[in-house]
Simulated scan of single mutants.
Amino acid sequence: MRALDLDYMLGLVPVLLGYVPLTLGMAAAGMALALILASLMAVERVFQVPGLDPLVKLFISFFRGTPLLVQLFLFYYGLPQVLSFLTNINGVTAAIMGLTLHFSAYMAESIRAAILGVDRSQWEASQAVGMTQIQMMRQIVLPQAARVAAPTLINYFIDMVKGTSLAFTLGVTEMMGATQKEAAGSFLYFEAFLVVAVMYWIIVEGMSFLQRQLETYLNKAYAR
Rank of each mutant, 00 (worst) to 15 (best):
R2I: 05
A3K: 01
L4P: 06
D7Y: 02
Y8M: 03
L12N: 13
V13L: 09
V13C: 04
P14V: 14
P14R: 09
V15W: 02
Y19Q: 14
L24Q: 10
G25C: 05
E44Q: 09
V46D: 10
V46T: 13
V49S: 06
P50V: 14
L52Y: 10
L55P: 10
K57E: 14
F59N: 04
I60R: 09
S61P: 05
T66G: 10
L69G: 12
Y77P: 03
Y77F: 05
G78A: 06
Q81L: 11
Q81D: 13
V82N: 01
T87A: 13
N88M: 08
I89R: 00
A94H: 12
F103Q: 02
S104V: 09
A105M: 05
A108N: 04
S110W: 00
I111L: 01
I115E: 01
V118A: 01
Q122P: 12
S126P: 07
Q133V: 00
I134F: 06
I140M: 11
V141E: 00
Q144T: 01
A145Q: 03
A145P: 06
P151G: 08
P151E: 07
I154K: 05
I154M: 04
N155K: 10
Y156N: 15
I158F: 08
D159G: 14
T164K: 05
F168C: 01
T169I: 13
Q180F: 15
E182Y: 10
G185C: 05
S186Q: 10
A192L: 01
A192F: 00
L194P: 11
V195E: 05
W201E: 07
W201M: 11
V204E: 04
G206N: 06
M207A: 13
F209W: 12
Y217R: 15
Y217A: 15
N219H: 07
